[in-house]
Amino acid sequence: MTKSPAALSLTGLTKRFGAMTAVDDISIDIREGEFFTIVGPSGSGKSTLVRLLAGLEAPTSGRLHLRGLDITAMPANRRPTAMVFQSLALFDHRSVGQNIEFAMKMKGVAPEARRLRALELLRLVRLPESYYARPVTQCSGGERQRVALARALGSDPEILFFDEPLSAIDYRLRKTLEVELKELHQRTGKTFIYITHSLEEAMVLSDRIAIMRAGRFEQIGTPDEIYRHPTSRFVASFMGEVNILAVSQTPAGPVFADLECAAPEAAGAFAVLRPESLRPDASAPVTFAATVTQKLMLGSRTQFHLRAGQAALIAEIAAGSGASLSLGETARFGFDPADIAWVQA
């Protein structure tokens, strides 16, 4: 069986700082042209991991191969990769053009060729050519993002790394840039490795997502797999507001302990249930009584905070689809066990 080598191959990659293990024995192959996103909370080791990949930190142990070539000991300035930094790290003492040309200048590309390529990259990231001579200090937040992206692309890298570049940007601009980044990935066909703390952002962008926790990958999968089949409560909790119900075994069979109702066909220790799967519907396969403690209008949906036995739950109902429940009212809510994602831990 012949297989082209992975774009980037991590084997037992580990990084320790004193007694603390930031990256713990990670092995994975990243495919050519893949948009691979690593999602994790702060302190999960995702930034350290990307710094190892870029060559800005040396691993304590493990190997790193780029298309079959061992690059573990290769310093950052010789790796054919480029990174977009969280702070962007633009050279404020240089113009937009000089920033973009930096890597080419390091390689000794002739000034005129550099300029042409820089102008081409400006177009690629949708900045007007007139920005070429502008000081980067005179660019807005979104423009600086694009300059940073163009600068990284200017080194003509095999792989691009992104260390949470959109984390400090307001919501609307972030959405625009996400779409542009996705298009850029499709157009350039390069391998992108992206770090973020937002699963939502990862879902939009990625071909494959790795959820990182305490230096290890908790789950790896396509956005769809992660969304439909989270393998742990940790992963499920990353998806925003979800209901997690513990199952306990009784002589009468498994029950949802907090709801005091039977848990038929329980396939795990915990049930993950999305807010939209929970309905004020007395005819659902599983039902229980719940009191409305809070009612929030979310535009297209209405969110209800519920108390049922010991459990606090969240339900979301499409606005206008009946259910004119008011605060303090008690009603029967229910769900279909088929909508449950079962996790063991």
């Binding site: 060559g55 310093p75 010789r78 790796r79 480029a82 990174m83 050279f91 890597a103």
Partner: peptide
């Protein structure tokens, strides 16, 4: 000199 500027230059191939 912010440390990340040095890293960025390194990353872009500067010796």
């Amino acid at each position: 000199i912010p440390a990340d500027r040095i890293e960025a230059a390194q990353d872009l191939g500067a010796g």
